[in-house]
């Protein structure tokens, strides 16, 4: 029997256990193992190794599950308590945005009046209004983006498993 035949048999022995082989390959391997003591030994050793791995016992620490359940419940309670605060924060943000949008025409008029009274060029008070309107929004957007990218990084590796 050639060295290539043994190498092929060795490959198939491992492949059969790792990802499975076709019916034709299984038949070829069975026929080869019947004739070849070396490959039969290898197949036996592989099965023995996997059997040993499967029956390997790792004692589970006493009380670990109940300690974990207790910690998880505590954490769940903490999260529940934090939930209303977060909701209130979002509500406050929403109200302030609505108020900002609704008051924009009045603020525009105020800037216009002040600009005319102070004799400022139109571009300056328009720019002033633009800054008044956009800077808080940009700041809030930056905070939200930073927060979501931080959450995204965490979510990324967690969702890789699903």
């Amino acid at each position: 029997m050639s060295r290539r035949t043994h190498a092929r048999a060795e490959e198939l022995i491992a492949e059969e256990r790792v990802e499975g082989i076709s019916q034709a390959e299984r038949e070829w391997l069975a026929a080869h193992i019947e004739e070849c003591m070396l490959c039969a030994d290898l197949a036996r050793q592989t099965d023995q190794a996997l059997r040993s791995l499967r029956t390997m016992a790792i004692p589970f620490p006493r009380g670990l599950a109940s300690r974990t359940q207790f910690r998880v419940r505590l954490r769940a309670q903490e999260l529940r308590e934090r939930e209303p605060k977060r909701r209130a924060l979002w509500l406050a943000c929403g109200v302030s945005w609505i108020f900002g949008a609704a008051s924009a025409p009045y603020v525009w008029s105020l800037f216009q009046w002040f600009g005319q009274r102070a004799g400022l060029p139109k571009l300056v008070w328009e720019l002033g209004f633009g800054l008044w309107w956009t800077i808080p929004a940009l700041f809030a957007a930056a905070v939200l983006l930073m927060e979501s990218s931080r959450k995204g990084e965490q979510a990324d590796w967690i969702s890789q498993g699903s």
């Binding site: 670990l64 300690r67 974990t68 910690r71 998880v72 954490r75 769940a76 999260l79 965490q154 979510a155 967690i158 969702s159 699903s162």
Partner: peptide, 16 residues
Amino acid sequence: FQETWIRVLERGHQYD
């Protein structure tokens, strides 16, 4: 083991 379950609680909404 304990940390894993805390994470499961916190990030459970990401399991689809």
